[in-house]
């Protein structure tokens, strides 16, 4: 039995997904921020800034207004059943994006790089952004992240070996790149950040893997023992840098560190780092022929 796609139903479901992503901070991110807040010193700017961020998240959810005025790039990771048209799903999401912009869940954020003109509806070349995979489940799964410009501007990519950092082609070299990126970013990516890392791949697929890590729960553990160890070490060490929320100083510089890896060419060793702001806006929707569920 092939999956019967009702595009009107899918369009409405995606508008709701966008609304949730823009206005509701995921529960695990809220928990990670609360943990950070609780360990900051009484009366410190770090503590009060984290409280302010948490209060903003509550108000945004209550009023259904954007957590941040920069509603970012819409990044979709989509998994479809065998036989469903990618093109139909893509067109439907584009339509939903236009509606969500009209409803002010999104700020018009797609600017023509040649003419400088804003399309006004968040659609254009590579906007929104799609990545498709196929699976055997009778459902369409859409993971949506809204990634703001400030955090994208401090994201980075390294090519190992790196002489400046004395970083070789191994996990120790990867570790050095991440310390360097987070220190260079200071508060500008809207710290405390969530750090998605892609080891290997080419320049494009490495960043794809890095961004995909941002969908992992703050609380999960990497199934690869060595990467799990690297994640814990980086989380602990990055939080000793003292940059703190918005760069005002403090113990909470990152909320989570998530590492993925891909095969690489013998000649290349890229480390791709996707810095996500504390307003880590991402939600997942599962859409079957009869029901829609959101995480």
């Amino acid at each position: 039995m092939s999956f019967q796609l009702d595009t009107n139903r899918l369009r409405d479901a995606v508008v709701e997904l966008i609304r949730m992503a823009s206005t509701q901070l995921p529960e695990d991110v809220i928990q990670a921020m609360a943990t950070g807040r609780d360990r900051e010193d009484e009366g410190s700017p770090a503590k009060s800034v984290l409280n302010f961020m948490l209060r903003n998240a509550e108000e945004a959810k209550k009023n259904s207004t954007p957590i941040c005025q920069d509603t970012g790039t819409n990044i979709h990771y989509i998994t479809i059943p065998v036989g469903v048209s990618m093109r139909a799903v893509q067109q439907t999401i584009i339509e939903a994006t236009r509606i969500a912009t009209e409803k002010a869940y999104l700020r018009p954020n797609a600017v023509d790089s040649v003419t400088g003109k804003n399309t006004g509806d968040n659609t254009g070349e590579m906007a929104p952004y799609f990545h498709f995979e196929e699976w055997d489940e009778p459902a369409i799964k859409i993971q949506l992240a809204l990634k703001g410009g400030g955090s994208e501007n401090v994201s980075a990519q390294y090519k190992l070996p790196d002489n400046r950092l004395n970083a070789g082609r191994n996990l120790e070299g990867v570790y050095k790149c991440i310390i360097d990126t987070v220190n260079s970013a200071q508060g500008l990516g809207c710290a405390p950040g969530v750090i998605g890392i892609g080891i290997g791949g080419d320049r494009a697929s490495g960043m794809l893997i890095a961004k995909k890590q941002l969908f992992r729960l703050m609380t999960d553990t990497n199934s690869d023992e060595k990467l799990a160890e690297l994640e814990t070490r980086l989380y602990d060490d990055l939080n000793t840098l003292g940059i703190g929320p918005m760069g005002f100083g403090g113990k909470t510089t990152v909320l989570g560190v998530k590492v993925g890896a891909a095969h690489r060419l013998p000649a290349s060793f890229f480390v791709s780092i996707a810095y996500m702001c504390w307003a880590d806006r991402r939600h997942t929707m599962t859409f079957t022929e009869t029901e829609v569920t959101y995480d």
């Binding site: 800034v49 961020m53 903003n56 009023n63 954007p66 957590i67 941040c68 918005m246 702001c277 307003a279």
Partner: peptide
């Protein structure tokens, strides 16, 4: 003065 980034709802209020 540094305002908190990403806290746009409260700031608009």
């Amino acid at each position: 003065l540094h305002a908190v980034g990403g806290a746009a709802t409260i700031q608009a209020q």
